[in-house]
């Protein structure tokens, strides 16, 4: 049965596109899209004040690079604080929910509902409560990033095979040892998927919070260029935001790669 399954997996892998194709095809598609866009702008098909051309976006990005870098730094610092605190809060919640059923029953629905509140609506409130500085941004990011971490950890903890826990008990393992050797590693993979979502939320959350009140950061920069109708600069900042989010996601991937060496072995086996 096991052998059959792994054969099945490797045969589907064999039918997957080659690495080269996986890189070339999307790059070509993107280049084509940009070319069409540039052409549409250059020929006057779309007026420049409605949609800046890719080249003008690139030009304004380089022209404003040092300013954008300054604002990016503010956004990154906020995102980092928010993400770290958010992950810690998410961890504590997940531990409590896993350990105490009553806590889970009490807070699981409340937490889910809390995630349906639009961030754009609470951001002004946070500005009212915490001012224009770092605090309201960090709080907003914590509110949006802790949830994916908690959800992924709780489901990871629950994915543990009860037979494995029984086996640990026959070895005389304590609750802490069961957590350390079985539950936490079992949840690691799902934790990283949650963390990847949280990482993107962190940047976007910071930008939204800045947009609604602040003195520095990409959100602030965007409100300023919007007021001067410099949509090329607006697009440039969107590019930077995407870049930062992707970079943060890559960082999470890297962390996963380093902390879960056994996953690499499993993957390379499937690629045989």
């Amino acid at each position: 049965m096991k052998a059959l399954e792994s054969e099945h997996i490797s045969s589907t892998h064999a039918r997957q596109p080659s690495r080269l194709r996986r890189v070339v095809v999307p790059v070509v598609a993107l280049a084509a899209l940009l070319a069409v866009w540039e052409l549409a702008c250059d020929t006057g098909l779309v007026p420049a004040f409605m949609l800046p051309s890719p080249l003008s976006v690139a030009r304004s990005l380089f022209a404003d690079l040092s300013l954008i870098a300054q604002h990016s730094l503010t956004t990154l610092v906020e995102a980092a604080y928010g993400l770290v605190i958010g992950v810690l809060v998410g961890f504590v919640f997940a531990l409590l929910m896993d350990r105490f059923e009553t806590f889970y029953l009490a807070f699981e629905p409340l937490m889910t509902v809390s995630q349906t509140i639009p961030t754009i609506a609470i951001a002004p409130l946070l500005v009212l409560w915490f001012g224009y500085g770092l605090a309201p941004k960090v709080v907003l990011i914590v509110l949006t990033t802790f949830f994916p971490v908690t959800v992924s950890l709780v489901s990871g903890f629950r994915s543990v095979d009860p037979d494995m826990v029984d086996l640990m008990r026959t070895m005389g393992a304590s609750r802490l040892q069961i957590f350390r050797y079985v539950k936490l590693p079992a949840a690691a993979e799902q934790l990283f998927s949650g963390l990847r979502i949280s990482a993107t939320y962190a940047i976007v959350g910071a930008v939204i919070a800045e947009w609604l009140g602040g003195t520095s950061g990409l959100g602030v920069y965007m409100t300023r260029v919007r007021k001067s109708f410099s949509y090329d600069k607006m697009f440039a900042s969107i590019l930077v935001i995407s870049g930062l989010s992707l970079a943060l996601m890559r960082l999470v991937d890297l962390l996963e790669h380093v902390t879960m060496p056994w996953k690499r072995a499993e993957r390379s086996k499937n690629h045989d």
Partner: peptide, 25 residues
Amino acid sequence: PGSVSYMLQKDLLLPHLTIMDNACL
């Protein structure tokens, strides 16, 4: 629990530990 050894149909090796560390558990 803890005074006799128990083994199941499933090997229940922990995927994140090497064979050595699984055996040492």
